[in-house]
Design a protein around this nucleic acid. Structure first.
Lengths: 402, 402, 402
DNA sequence: GGCGTTCTAGAATATTCGCTT
DNA sequence: CAAGCGAATATTCTAGAACGC
């Protein structure tokens, strides 16, 4: 669709793209796509099969996470996050893949439209053919677009400059969701569609809240406050709900996310402990049990924050939260990115704790959890920008895992 | 616009642009830029990349898989100050650099246009190709032009006109912003775009005026004053605005930004060019309470403006939060990220006070008594930002660190 | 950005632009498009020229509307509605055209992207290359999408799948705006971008509203109520805002646009005259004084719907306004120009007299100007939207001027 | 009711023009 | 006249809603 009419365009995008593809050895491009339809269809079939057959867990938590309880083979019925995860994990789909860290997805829109969205009838994966709808789904499930501005490293850029590929690159889209990671299908259960709050609260509510207006990036909305409550109430749901999607709704007042985001956990793992990453206050949604006790006061408030009353409290909470988060997060380069969302409400430690986490562990000592780290450590930020070689840059890049 | 069509670009703008520069082969990409630079540059590159790509972090889930607390990531498009800071810090860009003190930026307009503004498509950094627009952005974010030129007399200028070098020199422009310093990426968070006040005033106002529309220029005063009110009203805005941008909008009662800016230590410093490694130990920004108290009134109002009830609180909170964040963040490069959110709670004036800070050593003792900071830790921030000596901000911070 | 540095572009914008016209043979131009760039560019040039050169009034009002005084060559500066109107009227752009009635625009998205959005540098018309942004603009200016598609059944779809053309057709998009009609450039002045309400209401307001949340289709939001209020208060502003943009802000209470849209004349064209284009109720902006008295009550309410107080009134008013403008403006081409300002305060009746109508003859008798037209005339709107047949819609349509 | 699709609105940043000083 | 700001428009991402299944 997008470029549908290939004919029109002199160079058909497609051709080009295609062309490139073949040539493009690289991962992302799909050569296959390019080919003629037949080929394409063949490919599609395979892919489809793969998906439907439950190739589901490619690698999944190899270690920890076992396969999932739910078997979800069927496609259509599969919830959106699941379908998405499958195609990302699948190596048959060349228009969408994990970023280097396996924490964000990368989509080559044009190719994605051809390879995934335009599938017909029986092989259809998503119900729409439009990227617009797909994006809406992503947002509903808590994904946020990363804007990697300067497009990739200059060096790379140069190299690619001459050709179309460049343009292709240009169009890559990055989306992130804390519960959507490579090899971690178990996290998918937490992804929940954001609920419609609708009239949620009546006047009073509105009064308190301040209205949705502010939400947006900076501040969170009050909207879901309903959800919040729920979250607390229900243990798991809380997580999933709040976490995944949820929060989307429940954005925190203002401070936010963004800030916190920055601070987030870089990869704590690395350096660590020190590196503080902030966690978005808001994000902390919930608390976990453990933490709970300690933080109780906090939490309580926070919740309220959501809803009506809470303004203050919220903040309060938030703040607090952040701190705790710090430690955890600190290392991440990722911090940069803003996170608007924000989401995961869980306190870091918690998370660590949490089950879901799959494979990894967060070794971080994390001193006081919510206690602010001693600053010294954190250099990264400073470093990057500045040059400090040390930490930061590193952390990001590093993937480190092996 | 965004990525414009590469085809067009065929012709490389770059070459042309580059031309001027000579070595840089590729225009925008700088790959050339990339060249091999020294270590620093390499590092920078990474950083740069990181920024742009966000490399997001991550990784590994294989191992880790935890869900992310997430945070992080998104980067919205890097905000203007961030992008600017990156190019100034980068040694790849030869058209813009720090002044000797690292407290102001120097732009060779002609080269800047070619090297930065004319970049195309995927490599575009700023969205405009015009210097005028860039300047507007600078102003919106609180930069003021310094008249350092040794402006040569017009006549002379003409004479020399032919000589590019000369004329070029002639065109150096110096812009200063208290929160924009070499090695101090953490200060960037304070830079906030000036908000449009517009409806600023509440109902009554709206009723009467009809809104800003009529007020017009002359009314300027009125405007602001509205704004002021608004500022007060809306907690958050008040902060952010005031802080970052300084009030442009919300000008503070008496303190003028400008003043503050001017007051800043532009030249003072020299000594330190010190590099960077600055990383401020603690970015603690600062204070909150103290300031708060002063500002309290403000907040109250503001809130109302914003949303009904919660405003204040929120703001409050926010502020607080930021603070906390600061610290945390401090190390992070991530901190940089824009937080739109906004953080720095300090009123502009304050800032003035300690403006410069960063890389530079701030010998300042952390003196402010009331400031709790333990400076040690946080030093940088505190000192810098620190501003208000007064109060309490501390409390918040505190908690943490020790 | 607008026209950036010509130097960069190989081809000088100017030259090119001039060149052209003749060649565009194909309708959509695509051919050219497809072809190599050269051809394409030639075509584009022409088109561009046409636009820029003020081919503005194609047919319009030749008689009525004299040519314009101003020449409006420059494009960029032209406001969005103006630019859009020009390309729709122009026969050089084949990707966008009027529907049979001249009351809605039809866009072939794929072609539009290539023909219009992808124009580069100096020939750029809109600042974006994305359809998404364009749609946002359409919405900001009050356009609503009509669902006229005869979306073909899936089965059929499959069958036709191979044929690109088909699919292309399948993608036609219809957008309607009461002030955007074939041959009626004078109506463009009424189109005003929807203002950001933001702080709109002060505390009280906020309390009342409950937040914008609910607004949406069905109900209007309360948000703007400030605006509304303002509108009422300020004569002029009221006009412009409400009128132009209209309703966008001030949506009507229960009638949903959507409904109207759906109801719209989908294919009506065929039969025709009748084809009704719906006018959104709200759109009627105006009413002036005269009307005022009668409608007062109304107004009160409406406001509320929108925003607290003003909804109705506003709408009402708008209508009126428009009317007045009509006459005056009608002749002037200049009127077209974007006046952002907006102004014409003339009382409706005047306008009525000639409202929409431009080229098309609207035989309709202008009965009472501000009086709600006798439906007969207006049928389309009334019927379509359904809504209340009575008054409002009518008036608008009928222009009737002579 | 949940989920998906689609259209529209909210909100923040960005760009540009013109006035004012 | 240059610097800076007000204001309007533009761009982009995310959220709200309604509708259908």
């Amino acid at each position: 669709m997008a470029h549908a009419p290939s004919e029109i365009q002199g160079v058909s995008p497609k051709d080009e793209s295609t062309g490139s593809e073949s040539s493009i050895t690289s991962p992302w491009c799909d050569n296959s796509i390019t080919g003629d339809l037949d080929l394409r269809s063949q490919i599609e079939e395979k892919a489809f099969q793969a998906l439907s057959e439950g190739s589901l867990m490619k690698e999944p938590c190899h270690t920890l996470c076992a396969s999932e309880p739910d078997g979800d083979n069927d496609f259509p019925p599969l919830p959106f996050p699941r379908k998405l995860w499958e195609i990302v994990e699948s190596d048959r789909f060349k228009s969408i893949w994990w970023d280097e860290n396996g924490t964000s997805i990368v989509i080559n829109e044009e190719r994605f439209k051809k390879e995934v969205l335009e599938r017909k009838a029986p092989f259809r994966i998503f119900e729409t053919e439009s990227m617009k709808s797909l994006v809406r789904q992503l947002n509903l499930y808590g994904f946020t677009k990363l804007r990697r501005n300067f497009q990739r490293p200059a060096s790379l850029a140069n190299i690619l400059a001459e050709d179309n590929e460049v343009s292709a690159w240009n169009k890559l889209q990055f989306y992130h969701n804390p519960n959507f990671k490579r090899g971690c299908p178990h996290l998918l259960v937490r992804m929940k569609r954001r609920v419609r709050v609708k009239n949620a609260s009546p006047v009073s509510a509105s009064l308190l809240q301040g209205c949705s207006k502010k939400r947006s990036r900076t501040g969170g909305d009050v909207d879901n406050h309903n959800s919040d409550v729920a979250a607390e109430t229900r243990g798991e749901d809380a997580f999933s709900a709040s976490t995944n999607l949820n929060v989307p709704l429940i954005r925190w007042p203002s401070m936010s996310q963004r800030i916190s985001n920055t601070t987030t956990p870089t990869r704590s793992g690395l350096s660590s402990p020190s590196s503080p990453s902030v966690r978005p206050p808001g994000q902390i949604v919930m608390a976990q049990h453990a933490i709970f006790s300690q933080l109780t006061t906090f939490h309580m408030h926070s919740q309220s924050s959501y809803s009506p009353a809470s303004g203050h409290i919220v903040n309060f909470i938030t703040t607090t939260t952040s701190i705790s988060q710090y430690r955890l997060i600190s290392n991440f380069p990722s911090g940069y990115f803003g996170l608007r969302v924000e989401p995961s409400p869980l306190p870091t430690r918690y998370q660590n704790i949490s089950p879901t986490e799959c494979p990894v562990s967060n070794p971080q000592p994390a001193a006081h959890p919510w206690f602010p780290m001693p600053m010294a450590t954190d250099t990264s930020a400073a470093s990057l920008s500045r040059p400090n070689p040390q930490s930061s840059s590193v952390s990001e890049h590093h993937p480190n895992y092996h």
